[in-house]
């Protein structure tokens, strides 16, 4: 039964798909995907910083403006 399975044909079709890592070395598509992924990863760090900075600055300003955290005047 095992020998009857069309392994060779199936295997060749799959391994020739362009994102698969075969024995022929790295494809140009894989390199491009890697570069794009790396760039997105770097950009996400800037995004995390900028998004949070805005939230924190707004909330801190709001809290300061209410005066709730001000030091009471000396008696």
């Amino acid at each position: 039964m095992f020998d009857a399975f069309a392994w060779d044909e199936w295997s060749e079709t799959i391994t020739q798909f362009w994102t698969f890592s075969g024995q022929d070395g790295t494809s140009a598509g894989t390199v491009i995907l890697t570069i794009l992924g790396f760039a997105v990863m770097l950009i996400s760090f800037f995004g995390f910083v900028i998004l949070e900075e805005g939230k924190l600055a707004r909330q801190a300003e709001k809290l300061r403006s209410t005066g709730a955290l001000d030091r009471p005047p000396a008696a």
Partner: peptide, 13 residues
């Protein structure tokens, strides 16, 4: 390396 055979889908590994 991220573009290498080892870090991609591979039927041999």
């Amino acid at each position: 390396a991220p573009w290498s055979v080892g870090l991609g889908p591979s039927l041999q590994d």
